[in-house]
Nucleic acid binder design. Sequence first.
RNA 1: GGAGAGAUGGCUGAGUGGUCGAAAGCGCUCCCCUGCUAAGGGAGUAUACCCCGAAAGGGGUAUCGAGGGUUCGAAUCCCUCUCUCUCCGCCA
Length: 436
Amino acid sequence: MTLTKKTTPKQLLSMLDIAFIRENPELVKTGMLNKGEKDASAVDSVIAKDEEWRELVTQIDRLRAESNARAKEIGKLMGQGKKEEAQQIIDETGKSKERIKELEEKVASVAEERQELLYRIPNVPDDSVPVGSTEKDNVVHSTWGEQTDEDWRLPHWEIASEKKWIDFERGSKVTGAGFPFYIGKMARLQRALINFFLNEATANGYTEMQTPYFVNEDSARGTGQIPDKEDMMYTIPRDGFFVIPTAEVPVTNFHRDEIFEEKELPLRYTAYTPCWRREAGSYGKDVRGLNRLHQFDKVELVNIVHPEQSDRELELLREYAESLLKKLNLPFRTLLMCSGDMGFTQTKKYDLEVWSPGQQRWLEVSSCSNFGSFQARRMQLRFRNEKGKTEMAHTLNGSGLALPRIVAALIEANQTEAGDVIIPEVLKPYMGTDKI
RNA sequence: GGAGAGAUGGCUGAGUGGUCGAAAGCGCUCCCCUGCUAAGGGAGUAUACCCCGAAAGGGGUAUCGAGGGUUCGAAUCCCUCUCUCUCCGCCA
């Protein structure tokens, strides 16, 4: 692994490869429209702007080459003591300097315009992604377990408040809505799930990490939270930090500006962190109980892989996340997200939704995504291929898993009519008890 | 928080205005020699972008923590910022 120095000046940051856009404009436009963008004119604009940029760069490079040659000649003459001849060349040089300066200013502004356009172009969906506009167009990839429907089952917030397991009111007092306290056995259950998920991940080849919970602006940009999802994050303006909305941000940025040897791939990391999300605009039944919080716990999985492996890796990641739900014995379904519902940065995405028998609805507990080279390009995360050339790696991530909705479903699915909650087999060693 | 020192290529580390993208050593790759568990000789070994070329390859520009300035010319001089280390203070 090689650490390169600051290879990501902002004006060079791109998301899709400009060369790829240039060569496949129609493909990129179609992808953009399928993802629900209103128009795809940014594609033509960026190609035109890039053309302009390249012409300017060529001009500047030529002028600089001339200027460098003159400076070298002066150096040589000075060394030989021919001061007058040197002075003659110096006198001739003035004008080209001004011209270069002028062009440099121009190229900087053109580069910025080009970059702005480039940022607006989303990743191209994979061929296997269904074209669609809303969540209704998502395809059910598979389902597992029985979707129970029994009248006596209570929603988790009723059970939890009855048992004094989760205190939303005091959470509101101490911090605000969406910041609950977990108490007693429920705190223990959280800890049990975190340990279970981390142990499963490390047993499956993931390297465990503990990460910073605040990141700087470059990192937020690297994984695409900026400018795409800036409003999702809490900020610490005084120190210029962003509070992480997911461990994906610090973990993926861990290798920013690095070049790997091909044999070092794939890299697999897992990290437990709390996640903070502003969730502006949410309301109603969506935010009831544990359904949507401003702070929640999650174990995240991140893979950095060879481009040829990423399709397969996404399936492995999905199967791994599904295996956790099976071990917890929680019925779920897996959705293949349609083009319009999958987000700006992904090429393909699966959502895992667990069945909530107390609420009679599906709750998303994991999202497994392939980003292709999109994030990698932004972060300059590369490897040296067999020809010795540097190439962008592919990145994937997935939740494995997010806790609150697991807890919700688990409480509701495992409640007995006597009012107990049965602990799933795999969690018993962590809980030290059969039921709570 | 106070005081000081520093930031050069994968690593160590030279270089205080002129053929410096950067000495030397280490590491790594390839070749040669030898033949014995180790050594010797040679060559190569940063990243990004632009131009030419079908390609192989060739030409050019930029980068010595980041940004700006002085100069015909900056790793070297000036300014701002960031980070690291040492000492003091504080602290889980």
